[in-house]
Amino acid sequence: MEQLYQDLKELIVDALMLTDLNSSDIATEDPLFAGGLGLDSIDAMELGLAVKHKYGVRLSSDCDVMRHAFYSVKNLGDFIAAQRPSPAAVPEQQ
């Protein structure tokens, strides 16, 4: 999961063009929006599109579910991980 969190931080910096920020400046459990990064609802839409394109996940139509998923890098990572097949379920390639 740590690698996914790190990848997400880099995606946030790239997709939202936070050019002064290093991915290490983003704390995994801190709020992404209405917090210190200065991100807003339009950033949330941009990040949603970037996450869909990169990870192929589907966003829920339930606003409360998505608010929770986009609350922090940790929540977003968990949301993406929950939609990925678990390693045990993926058949090994011959």
Binding site: G48, S60, S61
Partner: peptide, 12 residues
Amino acid sequence: RQQMHYTEEICA
């Protein structure tokens, strides 16, 4: 009543 925040909400 409810406000729309992103595309998936609108499509549903």
